[in-house]
Amino acid sequence: MTGTGEVVQRLTAETKGVPVVRPAGRVGRRHWAQVDRAFGMRMATLVQSAPPYSVLYGLVRSGLASRDWAHRQAGLYPTHIRLGKDERHRALDLRPTFTGWLDLANEHGVDRYVAEDGAARYARFPYSTAETVLDDLFDRMRAYFATYAPFGQVGAEKGLARLCWLLAMFSYVFRNDPVDQPFFGAFREGVPTVEQLHTAVEEDAVTELVQLVERLHGSGALHEMRRLAGHPPPGRPWGIAWPVFGSQWDDNDILVGGPRGATLIDVTSVLKVNDARRARRWIWRLVGCAWLDTADAYRIRTVALYLARYGVVVAWPLADLVEELLGGEDPERARHEFLDLVTRLRGTTPAVSP
């Protein structure tokens, strides 16, 4: 993709001179990563009332909850609650698209780390289940989001930020060992109450998350996303939260719009957007996700980056971006080469659409 350099330069140009949301003081890598995950959670709730898939997988993978519990929880969210009885028994592996449902278990196979029941994947917790407390916590969270987080609107942001912080912490164990996070120490000593979990929330992160939402609204970025979503009326979902491409590990942040054309948006709250190597990965990932949707289930016609600390949306029509990245090479040939590579890496055969 020889034209990547020129595309990356646009990010620097779009953010030049724009005020930045920063932490209140010196923070470590853990803080940056946690705020990024938590803000991604908040952005997803602006778009659709869907299960927090990585959170539920993480709780199963850590051994704090069973897979049956995770399916039951997923089936309680508005996107999944109308599923039939048989489908709700495996609700966590079903994802809505614009053309129906994507069944991860049947089409891609569920990773062994999240498919097994009963035993902690990391063997860190002497108490193998926290389902009763988690039931209470998730019931309260669903009710709070339903009341105070209307689609596409700023809500009770301080309370929402606290819940997103908790969700992000549980999401952490989907891909990481909980021993790295002090938060999970409470589970090694017993099963904490919901109130004890709330007291673990870091208030400096909450303040920062509220500021990021204020920047989203005040900068006009939320209005731009509404435009990309086709100006949905109040109360209607804007699109799809956490669209998945290939397996439960390969998801992105949000998809706004509908069957006639949607925008895939990668949300990032990093501070430095002029790192060319990092920016290349963002852009290539957007194109790769769009190409992986071989059945065109998500109808991706535009891709975008939302640079949360700047309040800047940078969007490209997918076809134009691919043409610019390839610098004159044949887009269809590049797409097929990419899918062939994915096939070899995964040992599967994707159905390439015409």
Rank of each mutant, 00 (worst) to 15 (best):
G5R: 13
Q9I: 01
R10M: 10
R10W: 12
L11R: 03
A13R: 14
E14W: 11
E14Y: 15
E14H: 11
T15W: 12
K16H: 08
A24V: 09
R29L: 11
H31Q: 05
A33T: 12
A33Q: 11
D36A: 10
R37N: 03
R42S: 09
T45R: 15
L46R: 12
L46F: 12
V47N: 07
A50S: 14
P51W: 02
P51R: 07
P51G: 06
G58I: 08
G58E: 01
V60G: 01
S66Q: 12
S66P: 03
S66D: 13
A70K: 11
Y77M: 04
P78I: 03
I81G: 00
R82W: 01
L83S: 04
R88K: 15
R88P: 11
R88G: 14
A91F: 07
R95I: 13
T99F: 01
G100E: 04
V110E: 09
A115S: 13
Y122N: 10
A123L: 10
Y127L: 07
S128E: 12
E131T: 03
D136N: 07
D136W: 01
F138V: 12
A143I: 02
A146C: 07
Y148W: 11
F151T: 12
F151N: 10
E157A: 01
K158G: 05
K158L: 03
R162Q: 15
A168D: 04
M169H: 14
S171Q: 09
R175V: 07
V179M: 09
D180R: 10
P182H: 06
F184W: 08
V191M: 09
P192R: 10
E195F: 04
H198K: 06
E202T: 14
E203K: 13
T207R: 06
L209M: 01
E214Q: 03
L216S: 00
H217Y: 03
G220A: 06
A221C: 11
M225I: 13
H231S: 14
P232W: 00
G235E: 00
A241T: 02
V244Q: 11
S247M: 09
D250P: 00
D250F: 09
D251I: 03
D253A: 01
D253R: 01
G257K: 11
I265R: 08
D266M: 02
V267C: 13
T268D: 11
V270C: 08
V273Y: 09
A279F: 09
R280H: 05
W282R: 02
R285A: 00
L286F: 13
L286N: 05
L292A: 13
L292N: 07
D293K: 01
A295V: 00
A295R: 10
A297T: 15
T302D: 04
A308C: 06
V312F: 08
L318K: 08
L318P: 00
R335L: 15
D340R: 15
L341K: 10
V342K: 13
R344F: 15
L345Y: 02
L345D: 14
T348V: 14
